[in-house]
Nucleic acid binder design. Structure first.
Lengths: 348, 348
DNA sequence: CTTGCAATTTGGATCGATCCAAATTATCCG
DNA sequence: CGGATAATTTGGATCGATCCAAATTGCAAG
C-alpha cells in the first residue's frame, strides 16, 4: 500500500495470513479453508486489490498469460471487423484479452506488431496475413512453439494451423445457380490474381462452368482490386466487349456492389438486366436494392472457430498444425431476378 | 537458455559482460560504450532473444507498460472500426500495442474487460462507452490515476477526458443546407432519444430550423434505432402522415440508407423526390447511388486524435481531464438533388 | 493423552528485467 | 607519472506473484 499499489503482501498482512495463502486463494485452490478464503476475499475487496498478471506470468509459461494476439490485414473492411468480433467473443468468454493490430496490408507493420506482441507474452496468435506474407514471417513464432492460426488467407509453406472458407465450392455453387437460371455467358469480376484465394475461387468458377456444360472463356474473367470502385470499372469493361455476359459472379460483395454501380451508370438495372452473385454476405447484402444473392461466409462464425481452434491448441500445450475448411452456402435473394418470398421468412 | 527462453543473463554470459550492461543496452542508454553495445546487440540477434516486457514492467510504473486499452461499443459498425484503426495507427507508431475489446453495448462486458485490462497493466484507456455507462463505471480507473479518454459518447459526471464530434454544429449545417434549397418541412430521422448524442443533434436540428425561420414541429422527429432497417421504417411513418416532409436529416448514414430503401419501397427516388442528409460520412456514402450528402465526421481522424490525447496524458504522468470537440463539415453530394461535378474532382 | 494422517498454512527461492550505489577502467593534464 | 575526472561496468536488491518442500494445525482412533 506504500506507493498506492496493493499487493498480496498487503492483503496477507490485513487478513492475518501469509502471502502464500493469499496466492492460493487467488488461484482458487481447494487446499485453502473456506473461512480463510472468505476473509481474504473480503480484504481484497476492501483494499481495492488489482491482480498483477505481469508478475504472475513471470513464474508461469506464456501459455497462461491470458493474452492472444489478433493481426488483421484490413480492419476497415467489415468482413474483418466481423471476424475480429467473433474472435473477441470467444476469447473474452475464456477470460483472455486480445491484442488487436491492423496491418493495412503492410508486411513491415505485420512483422513489427507480431514482434511487439511476442514481447508482451501472448499465448497464441490469430492472423489474417497481409498480402505477400511468407512462411518465414512466422518462422520465429512457430519454432518457439507458439500456436498460430491463419485465417481467411493461407500462408504457403508455413507450419501453422489454418481456417479457410470453402472458396472452391462456394464459387462453384454461384456459377451453378446462374447456369440453372439459363445464363450461358457468365463473367467473373474482381480479385487480385496473385492471391491464393483468387485462384481457389477462379478454379471453382472454371469447374462450375465446365460442370454446366459451358465453355471456359478467359475473356470473361475481369480481375481487379476487390473494391466497390474497381468493381464498377470492371463491369464497364465487360459491357464494352462484343459478346457481353448476361450475368456474373464476383470476388466479393464489395465488387458486386460496384457492379451495381457500373450497371446503373449504363442505365442497366441489376437483377433485371444482369444477374449478379456476390461472395461473403456482408450485412448490406440483405438490405441493398436489389438484395444481393451471394455466398455466405459468416466471418463472425469464422472468427469464433478460429479462436476456438487457437484456444484448444493453447490448452493442449502443443501446437499441432491443422487445416480447417469452413462451409459456405448460397443465399438466394433478388440480384439474379426477383424471387418473391413470403415477408418475414429469411432465405435459406 | 535452459528451458528454451533466452534471458538477459544468457546474453550477458555470451557477450562477456554483466546483465546490468545488457539492460542498459536494451534501454538504449548513452552510458554504454559503442563497441559493447554492438557486441551485445549481435549476441541478442544470434541467440534469438525476446524482450520480456512483463518482467520489465514489474520494476516500472504502469505508464511504461506500452499497452493501451481500447473499448468499443460496436465494432461491427464501420464507424467504430475506423475509429479503432485511427487509434491503432497512432499507438503503433508510439511503440504501444492495444488491447481491443468489443462490448456490444453490454455494460457487464464493459466492466469485465476494463477490469481485465487493468490486471494486464494498461497505461491508459480509450473508450467509446456502452449505452448507459455511468461515471461510477470508470471511478476505479480515474482514482487510480489512469488516463482515460471517452470518445464519441460522453459519460456524464465522469472526470475523464473526452473527444466528441461537433454534433450541434453539424446538424445545424445539415438543416441550413436543406433550407437553402427551399425545403420548409424537414424531418429528423433516427437515434435513441435517451442518448446525449441524440439530444445534441436534435438541438442542432431545432436551432437550424429556427435560424431558417421555420417552425419547429415535434411531429417531424422520427426517433428509432440508428440502423438501416429502422431508418426505412421511420421514413415510412413519415410519408404516411398528412403533411409530409420534403426532405430530412438523419441521425447517421445507416439511417439515411434506410431512408433510401424506404423511399424506394414507395416508388420515390431519393435525391429527386426527397432530399436526404446523413451524418458520419461512412465510406459507402461516396459510392452509393445517389451519393449521400452528409456531415463528415472522419472517425479515423477522431481515433488518431483520441490516441494522441491519451498518449500526451500518459507521458505527462498526470491525467488532467480535458474536453475536445472535433469539427465536422458538410459534404454535398447528390442526395438533395443532383449537383454535377467534374468527374475526378472530389467534393470538398 | 498420545500417535497418525489429513487438512492447512507458510517461509524462502524464483521468474526476468531494472535501479542504484559503488567499483572499475580510461583519459586528461600539470 | 600521479591524481583527478570522466566514462563504463557491475553486483546485489527489488518489483509482485507462484511454487515447493517443510511446518503447523486439526481430528479421530487407540
Amino acid at each position: 500500500m506504500a506507493n498506492g499499489r496493493v499487493t498480496v503482501i498487503d492483503i496477507a498482512k490485513a487478513a492475518g495470513v501469509s502471502k502464500s495463502t493469499v496466492s492460493l486463494v487467488l488461484q482458487g485452490s481447494p487446499l485453502v479453508n473456506e473461512g480463510t478464503r472468505t476473509k481474504v476475499n473480503a480484504v481484497m475487496r476492501d483494499l481495492g486489490y488489482v491482480y498483477n498478471r505481469g508478475a504472475a506470468n513471470l513464474r508461469q509459461s506464456s501459455a497462461k498469460s491470458k493474452i492472444i494476439g489478433v493481426v488483421v490485414n484490413d480492419l476497415t473492411n467489415s468482413f474483418f471487423a466481423e471476424l475480429a468480433v467473433g474472435i473477441d467473443l470467444v476469447v473474452q468468454d475464456a477470460g483472455f484479452v486480445q491484442f488487436l493490430a491492423n496491418t493495412s496490408e503492410s508486411l513491415d507493420r505485420q512483422t513489427e506488431v507480431i514482434a511487439s506482441m511476442r514481447e508482451h507474452g501472448i499465448s497464441g496468435l490469430v492472423v489474417s496475413p497481409a498480402r505477400g506474407s511468407r512462411a518465414i514471417d512466422f518462422k520465429a513464432l512457430v519454432s518457439a512453439g507458439m500456436p498460430v492460426v491463419a485465417v481467411v488467407r493461407p500462408v504457403p509453406g508455413a507450419k501453422v494451423s489454418s481456417l479457410m472458407s470453402d472458396n472452391h465450392t462456394g464459387m462453384f455453387a454461384a456459377v451453378e445457380h446462374l447456369a440453372k437460371l439459363g445464363h450461358t455467358r457468365i463473367a467473373f469480376f474482381g480479385g487480385f490474381e496473385d492471391t491464393a484465394i483468387f485462384q481457389e475461387r477462379l478454379a471453382g468458377y472454371r469447374d462450375g462452368i465446365a460442370a454446366a456444360g459451358l465453355g471456359y472463356d478467359e475473356g470473361l474473367v475481369f480481375a481487379c482490386a476487390p473494391s466497390r470502385a474497381e468493381g464498377a470499372k470492371a463491369v464497364a469493361r465487360a459491357m464494352a466487349a462484343d459478346d457481353r455476359p448476361t450475368g456474373g459472379v464476383c470476388f466479393n460483395d464489395a465488387v458486386a456492389f460496384g457492379v451495381y454501380d457500373g450497371l446503373r451508370a449504363r442505365r442497366l438495372e441489376p437483377g433485371v438486366d444482369f444477374a449478379i452473385v456476390g461472395f461473403d454476405d456482408v450485412i448490406e447484402a440483405g438490405t441493398s436494392v436489389p438484395a444481393l444473392t451471394t455466398i455466405a461466409v459468416d466471418p463472425q462464425g469464422m472468427g469464433r472457430r478460429a479462436a476456438q481452434l487457437l484456444l484448444k491448441q493453447i490448452n493442449a500445450g502443443k501446437a499441432e498444425a491443422e487445416a480447417v475448411v469452413t462451409p459456405v452456402r448460397l443465399v438466394v435473394r433478388e440480384s439474379c431476378g426477383v424471387n418473391r418470398m413470403k415477408p418475414g421468412r429469411r432465405s435459406a
